[in-house]
Design a protein around this nucleic acid. Sequence first.
DNA 1: GTCTATATGCAGATAGAC
DNA 2: GTCTATCTGCATATAGAC
Lengths: 228, 228
Amino acid sequence: MDKIAKSQVQKKPAIRGKRPARKTPSIRKEELVTIAFDLFSERHVASVTIKDIARETGVNTALIYYYFENKEDLFGAVIEFAINRAFENFRKLHEQHLSPLDDLNAWINNNIEEFESIRKLVQISLDYSRTQKSIPAIERSIRQFYDEEVRILSNCIRKGIAEKTFKPVDADEFSRFISTYLDGLMVHSTILPETDLDRSVNQLRAVIWTMLGIEGTPPQSRQGSATP
Amino acid sequence: MDKIAKSQVQKKPAIRGKRPARKTPSIRKEELVTIAFDLFSERHVASVTIKDIARETGVNTALIYYYFENKEDLFGAVIEFAINRAFENFRKLHEQHLSPLDDLNAWINNNIEEFESIRKLVQISLDYSRTQKSIPAIERSIRQFYDEEVRILSNCIRKGIAEKTFKPVDADEFSRFISTYLDGLMVHSTILPETDLDRSVNQLRAVIWTMLGIEGTPPQSRQGSATP
DNA sequence: GTCTATATGCAGATAGAC
DNA sequence: GTCTATCTGCATATAGAC
């Protein structure tokens, strides 16, 4: 009884928070990683200071070193986080749809929906690649991300070809082509912010439809949200 | 006579160099810009120190401040330099070839030949875009670069369509598509260094040939140099 | 035009209180 | 878990000699 009471008393003062409420490690860590992810992708690691991240998160600089060994460690965690999130996203695409065409459309739509977050991931991967540092685990993750993206698309195309709804093409090669184009789109939209995403994706659809000999006009994305 | 002799004498002591031979301002400046260009594109501005550039150029840190106001100024000069060089390169493509098909091939080949230097330019443009700073002159240059690249290609496609050697497509839109794909390729080859450039370009050719309904198989790039 | 020497400031990182 | 205070080192930038 006394012991329990005591332990309760012990907890109370711990809960009385200062400015930023005391959070469980995992929450705080995730919070830091998410914010660092945004900052790093927007401005490059070297241009973002630990203080920037701390300020943006609303915590003190030193706290970052409580959760991460150093800036590089944080950067690693950020890449890992971004890639894992992207992978989770791929899972949606693994739910088997009925037709390869539906799968294809789902794949494209997913890329539109997740455009911003994929763009950030690509950007950070690019920044990482320009680092001299070599962290095998991260490199593996990045490769896996691209492989998985291409694999999903490639499977769907292969299936379509087998079913004769798509004209025969080299599925792997063509998937890589599409993936590369999308990367280009990410870069373009960063360099030229006025880039019309919907138009660019519609153009991609036009090419895919022609290459795969799909009948009819491809579905068009409209500007803004999906709501009418 | 005397005046001429005197001017010759004046020059002599100037030529007596220390470790790094004294150079004319324009040479040195260009040298610094070229080296900075390589470093910035490989490693991002913020990760390259003035000392790095000085060391690589074989001069003293302070000399950089003799030629440039500060690092940002140097960065601006680097972008300007890179874009101008790219523009000079475009001039080749303006020499009118005989057929649109030759023009198209020339355009693609140019992109292969200049791949490294365009990649660096794209990389630096991307880095610049992530800077908060807005230097209108630079932004204009970057836009002009993309516009020009697309314009050249688009003209050639338009001509081919007029001559009925190409199937009708939206020339501007399709040119932008190709340009975007190439940007993607630059990114890809940085992130995934094992990227097979020739294969990727051949795949691009396959798509272009299909989209434009060009008869026969497109010319294939082989690995390595053009020599047999 | 190029160097030596140096000021200055700030970013990354730690110690230790609470 | 979070903060205050502080050290350290290095990068940008300048002054001034040659």
